[in-house]
Design a binder for these strands. Structure first.
Lengths: 183, 183
DNA sequence: ACAGTTTCTGACCGATCGGTCAGTTAGCGT
DNA sequence: ACGCTAACTGACCGATCGGTCAGAAACTGT
């Protein structure tokens, strides 16, 4: 693994655990076994490190949303979205967790801004398809809950197979969103 | 409202939005219209401010867990817990949100440590009652999702009545946990 | 008016923050 | 062996961090 990628992964992990503001370049350097100057040699700034850490996951989420055609109330559209979303979560738990926690309060950072716009689009898209308060809450709990449950994984929990987790997540999220009808 | 309470509420809001590390005493002082020294007159340290901000909510959650008698698979026990949990969330959204985000990575702060112990107990308690991976995920999504959906409220969303939100939350969480059986 | 207490402030402290820069070290093609 | 480039480092910068302290300001009861 290259030093470049090492730093990206270390930073991602630290951002997820301690938050962006709570993570110092010095600490990232120590974990990597480098000096702080070396970290800033590979990445021009702390912001650049955040962009490298969570940017790709954000872009993929944007792509998933962009590929949706038609209202989410159509069962096939919904199922496709759910599976893509769950797969994204399984592959990018730390990135999603970091963005969820740091999203508000870091709006001036470009990559966070891009992600917040994405969430805004998601919200508008759902609002156009959903009527009741309960249905809104169903979406929030399904997406936020799935993201949460994966973000706290690996803590005092044995690791069941990814396939089993994936199947269970899809089952639960599908069940949660099943009652949603068009407004 | 007393200055003391003012500061507590301002700090709670800032901790929830920007995180503990991302919130400076200077910023809290500016919002309150005071000097940083005055903030430190009312609260001996930044940690004391965090304790005052989220401590009561943590204690209440601990009390709710302590009052549970018997396995969570008993419908009446489960329903009581769900209603108390939802009410806690509705009253202490920001506190719960702050703890969820800051819980890992601030373990040396007493109030956070107390909260982490509480979550650990919750986890053990569930593990004793729950068998399958799917059921574990159901609990995580239900509790984490409900906490998440309230923590991001007030953002570009009109405010439905608390009663309506409460009823919907209880419905959804109950539905999520209904399939859970004893191991 | 006075004394006592609570509230508040500016000046200051050492530590750490993100970031710059000149210069050293290491690897590599020739 | 040489020169070029990529990788890395220590010294240093201004700013900000949480926290201390002596004293000013404001409020209180008498």
């Amino acid at each position: 693994m290259s030093t470049h990628d090492d730093l990206r992964l270390i930073a991602l992990n630290e951002f997820a655990v301690a938050g962006y503001a709570g993570t110092s370049l010095q600490r990232i350097a120590e974990i990597a076994g480098l000096s702080k100057s070396s970290v800033l040699y590979h990445y021009a700034s702390k912001e650049a490190l955040l962009e490298a850490a969570i940017g790709p996951a954000i872009d993929r989420m944007i792509a998933i949303l962009g590929a949706i055609s038609g209202p989410i109330t159509v069962p096939e559209t919904r199922q496709t979205f759910i599976e893509q979303f769950v797969d994204l979560l399984l592959e990018h738990r730390l990135e999603v967790h970091t963005f969820i926690n740091q999203g508000p309060g870091l709006e001036d950072v470009p990559v966070i801004d891009r992600a917040n716009d994405m969430v805004q689009n998601l919200s508008v898209y759902f609002s156009n398809s959903i009527g009741s308060v309960e249905d809104h809450l169903r979406f929030g709990i399904a997406l936020g809950g799935a993201a949460y449950v994966l973000s706290v994984k690996d803590d005092s929990l044995d690791l069941p197979s990814t396939d089993e987790v994936r199947a269970a997540l899809i089952t639960i999220v599908s069940e949660l969103l099943a009652p949603i009808t068009s407004n």
